[in-house]
Simulated assay, not measured.
Amino acid sequence: MLISSFSNCSFIVSILILLFTSSCVTKKKYDDLNSQLLQVNTDAANTKRSLKLAQTQQAKLEEELSELTKANHKLISDSTSTGLALRKTKRLQTDLTNTYDNLLKNHEKLMSNSATESSRLSSDLTRRESELKALDENLKASKLQIDKLSVDLKSREERLNELERVLAEKDKAVDALRSKVSNALLGFKDKDLTVNVKNGKVYVSLAEQLLFKSGSTKVDPKGQEALQKLAKALQGQSDVNVLVEGHTDDVPVTKITGIQDNWDLSVLRATEITRILTKAGLDAAKVTPSGRGQTAPVETGRTAEARQKNRRTEIILTPKLDELFQILETN
């Protein structure tokens, strides 16, 4: 269409030129031709604008064509990817179908065994409920027993604390008694007289040479002095029992009037010492004489030195333990 407009315009221009060059024309015809020329120029300008617009539209269309071509290529590529995804999806669908079929078969198999399994599970449940009930009963019984043991333990702890208190007081009393006796007998030689604590008791050990002549049952004046000081120290100790033990060596007694053997000698000496202590002020009900003879030696040898150590009198001072025994009896 644009090419046709340009051809018409050129044709008219050519005619006008020919007319002007070939011959003279009338004014009216000239005006018509001039008017046509103006119209042709106007049409030519419009045609140029249309041509420019058409060229612009053509460039735009070419650009759109390029974009559409790219989009087409992308669609072709996406179509390929979509085809691959579709085939993969179909494979997954096939796998899922197979899995479903297997699950269906397993379900049918489980359903066929469900009755037997349900019966077994029901039996197990009943058994476990019975066991749980028994365990619960045992737990309650154990809790009662634990509560009882807890009460007993608390009671025992209280008695133990009380026992420890009494023992501590006893030990304190024994130490005080030992100190009092030791202070009362400070003037005597260590080899003649010793004061020790053993098994919660105070042992006053007096050697034979301090108390008696060999084979005699009469206490020498030095020995009487020691016994009187001991009695004075023990006066007022109403909670202390006194045991007097006579000990001899293993040499048999011979040619001593009225004494048959070492048993007899040890008893007579213990009795004599008991008399002196009670005459000096001790309560006779709290003093007990005892003869051990040669049965409890402090030295097992048969040397003169060992036998001299074995010939002794031990005065054993024992604090009363009534409160301690009362606590022990409650256990």
Rank of each mutant, 00 (worst) to 15 (best):
I3M: 12
F20W: 14
S22A: 10
K28Y: 06
K28A: 09
D31L: 15
D32T: 07
V40Q: 10
D43H: 11
D43S: 14
A44C: 13
A45V: 15
N46L: 12
K52I: 09
Q55T: 08
A59T: 14
K60P: 03
K60R: 13
L61M: 07
L65V: 10
L68V: 08
A71G: 08
L75I: 15
T80S: 13
D95L: 04
L103N: 12
N106C: 11
N106G: 11
M111N: 15
S118V: 02
L121Q: 11
L121A: 12
S122L: 08
L125K: 10
T126D: 14
K133M: 08
D136N: 12
E137R: 05
E137M: 06
S142P: 00
D152R: 00
S155N: 05
E164C: 04
V166K: 02
A168C: 05
A173E: 09
A176R: 12
K180I: 09
A184V: 02
F188S: 01
D190V: 10
V197L: 04
G200V: 04
Y203G: 00
S205T: 15
E208T: 05
G215M: 04
G215S: 09
K218A: 13
P221K: 14
K222Q: 13
K222G: 09
Q224L: 01
K232A: 14
A233Q: 04
G236I: 08
Q237H: 12
V242G: 02
G246N: 02
T248P: 03
T248F: 02
D249K: 03
K255H: 08
D261M: 04
S266F: 00
S266W: 01
L268T: 09
T271S: 13
E272F: 06
A284Y: 00
K286N: 06
V287I: 05
Q294P: 01
A296V: 11
R307A: 14
K309W: 01
T313S: 12
I315V: 11
L317R: 01
L324M: 09
L328I: 04
L328K: 07
